[in-house]
Every structure is written in C-alpha cells, then in structure tokens.
C-alpha cells in the first residue's frame, strides 16, 4: 500500500478547538489534575493537545501511568522519553504494589488479566495524590457505555460512576464543582472517532511507539483474536505460538491487546487500513468480550 490519504482538516480543526478548550477548562477549574497516560495512541494524543493548549507554557499537570507490569517494552521507553522531552512530572502507580499490599488478588486461569485490577490501583493513586480530576482518553465511539459519558464525569467518594446520576452538560459550560473526596474524570477527546485520531496523528506528524507499525512478533490465536505472547501467559492446549507480521490498533495491557495482521509501516498506510476496516478497534480487545455489559460494569467500579 502507498495510497495518498485524503484528510478532512476542517472537522479535525473543530475537534481540536473543542479538546483544547476542555484542557484549559480542566486547568482552570481543578486544583490537582492528573493526565492518565497509558502509552496508547489516545493518551499520546491527549498529551499533544495539552502541549498545544498551554503553549508557550508547560503542561500544568503531571502524567499518571497505571502500570500493570504486563507492558510492552516499547511503551515504557516511549513514555519516559516523552515526559523528559516535555519536562512534565511522571508518576507511576504499580498494580504489582496493590497485589503485594493485598489490596487486590491476581486472577487465575488462562484468561487471567490485570486489566480489571488496575481500577483499585488507579483509585488508590487518585486518593494518594489528592487528584481532583483525572484526564482520560476515552471516546464515545468506542463502546456503548462510553456513548453516554460526559466530558466532565462526576465520581463519588468511592470513585464510582453512576450513569443515572450524571450532570447534564449544556453548550460548553462545564460544571466541575464537587465535595471533598470526590473527583472528576474528564474526557477531552469524547467526540473523536478512531479514524479522527489517526488522521490527526498523521496531520500533526505525532511520533508513536513502534508497536503501532508492522513488526514480527510471537503471538497466538485465542477465539479468533491474535494476542502477543509473553512468558507469564498461560496457553490453552490447542493454542500455538507462531511468528506473524502484526501491529497494534490499540495498546493496553499485553494480556488483552489484540493484534492486527498487517504490513502497514507508515501512518499513511495505517490510516488507509483503518478507513477500510470493517471491525471496530475494541473488537480486538479481549477485556470487552467478557460479557455484553463488561465496560459498563468496569466503569461503574471506577475503571478508566
């Protein structure tokens, strides 16, 4: 593939204006915001938008990485370089610490994942840092529970999301008032779709971790989804580790990030591939396949 991609820059400009407005609103309305950084493309986009929003000043809040310990190496390297380059503080909260402290119990079995455990680590970190806003890269097009999410999403003192009791959001007036102990999740890129994100990354020439481009990797197929192999993962008897040309369409914990068989090695090809794709990006996320309401349940507990 070496197509020339057409980009509708007008609507990207409108989405950018909106996201930058929200970023500035966060800095103005909250005392101790943190930006949730996973190393995935959506959080990389958030950092880029924050950089633009506060230029020529620095981003006025730290990055917070909830580290499951099951990372792709490339993600950590990218994360450390980015924080250094921008001169922003990077805070890492480890799921392993939550396990060691007995706060959570590791899941067992072949489908074990630390994805759900992250919620406890995240809520503990929010409390320890006294963060009153956690900025996330959630988008409404990702999933039906996200389709009803607010830009400013209120969480009670237990960190829980109550879909029936969210504040209506009118015009561009955001209500970030809260009581002690409560916090907000804020989603500046709520209105972006996956394709918008990729087109914008292409337009802005944002550097991404190499995982997003094609590379050879040891992987195995589980129920139709290609997963990366790592030594800590248990295989089922029928599963076989093979090497394939793959790339990531989303990046999360290594145990639940589905891989796409692809030879796309540049942004142009990736955007072309995404535009032609007939499967949603979360179609490859093993964490969403657990039940029809998997995301809704995790969100209520306080997930990202």
């Amino acid at each position: 593939m070496s197509n020339t991609v057409e980009i509708n820059s007008e609507h990207l400009r409108e989405l950018e204006n909106e996201a930058i407005f929200v970023m500035r609103e966060i800095a103005a309305q909250f005392e101790r915001p943190v930006l949730l950084f996973s190393g995935g493309k959506d959080s990389i986009l958030l950092v880029h938008l924050a950089k633009k929003a506060f230029w020529p000043g620095k981003i006025p809040f730290p990055l917070l990485h909830i580290d499951t310990g099951h990372n792709f190496e490339e993600t950590l390297e990218y994360r450390d370089n980015l924080a250094k380059e921008l001169g922003v503080e990077l805070i890492v909260a480890k799921v392993q610490d939550s396990i060691d402290q007995g706060r959570v119990v590791e899941e067992k079995g072949v489908n074990a994942s630390r994805n759900r455990l992250q919620t406890v680590t995240l809520l503990d970190a929010v409390e320890d840092l006294k963060a009153d806003a956690a900025i996330g890269g959630g988008r409404r097009d990702e999933e039906k529970a996200r389709a009803k999410e607010r830009f400013f999403s209120h969480r009670d003192e237990f960190g829980q999301w109550d879909p029936k009791n969210q504040r209506p959001e009118l015009w561009n007036i955001f209500n970030g008032r809260k009581n002690m102990g409560e916090h907000f999740r804020v989603f500046p890129i709520s209105n972006w779709t996956e394709l918008d994100v990729w087109q914008y990354i292409l337009q802005e020439e944002i550097e991404l971790p190499s995982l997003y481009y094609t590379h050879k990797r040891k992987c195995f197929n589980r129920d139709g989804t290609w997963l990366a192999y790592a030594p800590f993962m248990q295989l089922k008897p029928t599963e076989e580790v093979v090497e394939r040309d793959v790339r990531c369409r989303t990046i999360g914990d290594i145990s639940c990030t589905g891989l796409t068989l692809s030879t796309a090695n540049n942004l142009n090809d990736i955007v072309t591939e995404i535009a032609a794709s007939r499967i949603t990006e979360r179609g490859g996320r093993y964490d969403d396949k657990r039940s029809e309401a998997a995301m809704e349940d995790r969100k209520k507990e306080g997930y990202f």
Binding site: N8, R140, D141, K144, A147, K148, P163, T193, A293, E296
Partner: peptide, 21 residues
C-alpha cells in the same frame, strides 16, 4: 441500544452520542 440499566427498565435514560461520516 443502550446500557444494561436501560435494557432492564426498557427506557432510555440519557443523551447518547453517535458518530458517522
């Protein structure tokens, strides 16, 4: 179709945002 909370009660509780191009 919306959230399970809605399916159980057979109502739509809120504004849902959808995207297409």
């Amino acid at each position: 179709d919306g959230l399970r909370a809605e399916r159980e009660q057979g109502i739509t509780i809120d504004v849902a945002y959808r995207y297409f191009a």
